[in-house]
């Protein structure tokens, strides 16, 4: 297949898909296209858009490719989307989502153990918002339900996949940096040293 037509076909498919379209699916639909070639094609398309000064790009989100308007033009575009009200999440919801995202599949009891408060309301709310879903039951006493995050979760936070979340070790480092330590205070710092 010619390079030009491959670019156009992939462009058409991503543009027409109502949901983010996975590289695997593109490869199934276009002959001679492999998932990795699909990724390269997308990168090539994005280069062209950039060179031409286009206001849109293709990005990977929730495991598929999707067109979006670059944030630079958000100010102009948002008028059109005025009716689209983004849902706001409370801190309790965000913390609970973080626990579920990193620990999935996870039971309500495990969430409650980490946060130290009852999780019923928050979990119910997140289920209703479709940011989490029931994944199964834990093989422990009472076989409690286990929860996991959804594609809707990835879309809401603009993540290509769960791998896009910052690593737990990075978060630990971040905390350690901000943590005042009594041990370090006892040591001589550079400016007091003779």
């Amino acid at each position: 297949m010619e390079n030009g037509s491959r670019l156009s076909i992939v462009e058409a498919l991503i543009l027409a898909s109502p949901e983010p379209i996975p590289a695997r699916k593109l490869a199934e639909m276009v002959s001679d296209l492999t998932p990795s070639l699909a990724g390269k094609t997308v990168a090539e398309l994005n280069n062209r858009y950039m060179e031409a000064g286009c206001s849109f790009r293709i990005r990977e989100i929730a495991g598929g490719f999707q067109y979006y308007i670059v944030p630079e033009f958000a100010g102009y575009v948002q008028e059109l989307f005025a009716s689209r009200r983004k849902m706001r999440l409370t801190r309790a919801s965000l913390e609970t989502l973080a626990i579920i995202a990193y620990r999935q599949p996870v039971t309500k009891a495990e969430i409650e153990h980490v946060r130290g408060v009852a999780a019923d309301g928050v979990v119910h709310n997140l289920l209703e918002k479709k940011l989490i879903t029931i994944r199964g039951r834990a093989e422990t006493v009472g076989k409690p339900l286990q929860y996991g995050t959804t594609d809707e979760f990835l879309k809401f936070f603009g993540l290509a996949s769960l791998k896009d979340l910052p690593k737990m070790s990075e978060i630990e480092e971040l905390i350690a940096e901000n943590e005042p330590k009594s041990q370090t205070r006892l040591e001589f710092s550079d400016d007091t040293a003779p």
Binding site: I69, L94, A98, Y102
Partner: peptide, 16 residues
């Protein structure tokens, strides 16, 4: 981690 998610959601709000 919840704070980081919050920031990501705010950034995502500007992607139409």
């Amino acid at each position: 981690a919840g704070e980081i998610l919050k920031e990501k959601a705010i950034l995502e709000e500007r992607n139409f």
